[in-house]
């Protein structure tokens, strides 16, 4: 499997500072396309911070400063000259708490395609919306009430709506920051299934606090600790035969 996959993101010497405080130290990692990579680690170790580097969401935090090189398909993305708006169309993001817009279900999904001009006619837009909802596994539940507000859905449905919204702009990478932390086991299983289905066509990165989830959905796992990327490797190896003592302690539940 590893022989076919190609590298989507090449991260070299990334440091992140919030003012004086350094949140990430010298992170180096390659992330493969067409697979799921999970980030694990104790709270406050910098997982979200790193995820935000990948779609330049750190730009929206005044005091954040990112150094180093992040290359996506041969292109440097950690570069002031690159418009983050263009990048975010290619790197979608799903947040920990479902955050649909207070608009209709249709408008939620259609918003991205609209602002990026992906559809020229109403029919095309409807098609994109339908496809995205189908891919996100929500179509059957909402097809007859697309005009209802997105906020009227249940938490699990909202999270899938948000995923549909992210895939509607046809991104190459999808970042998910603890997407299931607010969901019950059934909704979680549904999302995990969804991630598995989406894997073929996207490069997916997921932050999770659940070892089981990381083991279930990801092919590659990275362990962060105190702002350092301690260890990265195939998920099986990390969970069965970690090289670093800290990884082992974390997986065994000895801290975190």
């Amino acid at each position: 499997m590893s022989s076919i996959t190609k590298t989507k993101l090449k991260v070299r010497d990334v440091n992140v500072f919030y003012g004086e405080k350094q949140a990430l130290k010298n992170v180096n990692i390659d992330i493969a396309d067409g697979s799921v990579t999970s980030f694990i680690g104790p709270s406050g170790c910098g997982k979200s911070t790193f995820l935000r580097c990948l779609n330049r969401m750190n730009d929206t935090i005044d005091e954040a400063r990112v150094t180093g090189s992040i290359i996506m398909d041969e292109e440097e993305i950690n570069d002031r000259r690159l418009d983050p708006v263009v990048l975010r169309a290619r790197v979608g993001m799903v947040f920990q708490k479902p955050n649909p817009f207070p608009k209709s279900i249709f408008d939620n999904v259609a918003y991205g395609p609209r602002i990026h001009g992906l559809a020229s006619t109403r029919e095309e837009l409807e098609e994109i919306v339908e496809n995205s909802l189908v891919k996100a596994g929500l179509w059957n539940e909402v097809s007859d009430r697309l005009d209802d507000p997105g906020t009227s859905l249940s938490g699990g449905q909202q999270q899938r709506l948000v995923i549909a919204r992210a895939i509607a702009v046809n991104p190459e990478v999808i970042l998910m920051d603890e997407p299931c932390s607010a969901l019950d086991p059934i909704a979680t299983a549904r999302i995990e299934e969804l991630i598995d289905e989406l894997r073929e066509n996207y490069c997916i990165i997921i932050v999770t606090h659940s070892m089981q989830q990381a083991a279930r959905v990801s092919q590659q796992t990275a362990f962060f600790h105190l702002g350092e990327l301690v260890e990265v490797g195939p998920t099986e190896t990390i969970f069965t035969n970690p090289r670093d003592q800290r990884t082992q302690d974390y997986i065994m539940g000895r801290f975190g």
């Binding site: 979608g92 799903v94 649909p100 918003y111 702009v169």
Partner: peptide, 21 residues
Amino acid sequence: PPSIRQAAMGVGASSTQTVFH
């Protein structure tokens, strides 16, 4: 709520679009 801003930014809205939309 900031989550609305993040959501808009997340799908690639510029800050002007985020504010006005």
